[in-house]
């Protein structure tokens, strides 16, 4: 592998990893506060990408369209929690998981019925798709911009989590929901913020996906969601920094393994799964996670 190709793949990996990281944060935050694998999270990302697509088709400017997608995803995310998860807070865990898978399947099929299952071409503005080259490296500009935007946004998310009152409450909730409630924190409001943040980041991830591939379909959220979840487990479920780390590790691995062993290209989508199994076998708390199961008695 020449240095040029190495650098090119490095940037590609960072771009792919950004997408996984953005989606993984939603999984990890929801798991942190509700101990729920939100199966519908990947589909929220799909919804965000679709709404952005429709806004673009309605000749809105790109930046505004992204905001439309994010806003729509936030609404769907919060509604999902209010309608489907909130009534089941005290129900057995399995009921919550079944409902989550129901929501996921509902969104996938609803969008299939409404908009068909054929992939739709996604037209990002030219300033993102233009190819540029330095020293023999050819890349679309988006590949550079995506990681930069992602890092900036992640810095913002971490600031919220560690410096604001709401953020601290979110992190406290991850440890002990009952105690935090007793301390007068409105747990429902915090959970709503968690769903809003997670959905917004997922929608952004969905837009990045749409720019990179560049097409969207109603089932796009399944496999990406699965990978992002694996990234969250790899980083340590419950830990936001861990989710980011896991997302980037997964992104780099996918790009580099395929670059070095082209024969494995067909198995690209399976790497995340093996990561997941390996983490569960050797370090179930992930790279940066704490043991959230402690103190159950």
């Amino acid at each position: 592998m020449t240095l040029q190709i190495f650098l090119q793949q490095l940037v590609n990996g960072a771009s792919l990893g950004s997408m996984y990281a953005l989606i993984a944060i939603g999984y990890t935050m929801v798991y942190g506060v509700l101990r729920l694998i939100n199966f519908a999270h990947g589909d929220i990302m799909m919804v965000g990408a679709f709404l952005t697509y429709f806004a673009l088709e309605a000749s809105m400017p790109f930046e505004l369209s992204v905001l439309v997608g994010i806003a729509g995803a936030i609404i769907i995310g919060i509604l999902t929690d209010k309608i489907a998860y909130k009534p089941l807070r005290s129900a057995p865990k399995i009921s919550l998981l079944i409902t989550a898978i129901g929501i996921s399947f509902f969104l996938e099929n609803l969008f299939t019925v409404l908009f068909g299952s054929t992939p739709k071409p996604f037209h990002a503005p030219e300033y993102l798709t233009k190819i540029f080259q330095i020293h023999g490296i050819y890349l679309p500009i988006s590949v550079i911009i995506i990681p930069i935007v992602t890092v900036a946004i992640l810095a913002g998310v971490l600031w919220i989590l560690f410096k604001t009152k709401q953020g601290i409450a979110i992190r406290a909730l991850a440890f002990d929901i009952e105690t935090v409630k007793l301390m007068g924190v409105n747990a429902d409001k915090i959970i709503m913020i968690v769903f809003a943040m997670g959905s917004a980041l997922a929608a952004l991830g969905g837009v990045f996906y749409a720019i990179s591939y560049p097409s969207i379909d109603p089932l796009m959220g399944i496999i990406v969601g699965l990978k992002a979840f694996a990234a969250a487990v790899l980083g340590g479920i419950g830990s936001v920094t861990g989710a980011v780390l896991g997302g980037f590790i997964l992104g780099f691995t996918e790009i580099f393994v395929v670059a070095m062993f082209p024969d494995l290209g067909g198995y690209k989508d399976a790497f995340a799964f093996f990561f997941l199994i390996l983490v569960l076998l050797f370090k179930p708390t992930g790279l940066m996670g704490q043991d959230l199961e402690r103190g159950r008695f």
């Binding site: 729920l36 694998i37 199966f39 487990v233 799964f273 997941l276 569960l280 076998l281």
Partner: peptide, 26 residues
């Protein structure tokens, strides 16, 4: 699949089996 999944308490079974359904197709 049991060995990695059931060693940890939690809900990993669901996601691992969901993933497995896709892997087998791949």
């Amino acid at each position: 699949l049991s060995i990695p999944v059931f060693r940890v308490r939690g809900d990993y079974l669901a996601i691992v089996t969901l993933g497995f359904g896709f892997i087998i197709r791949i």
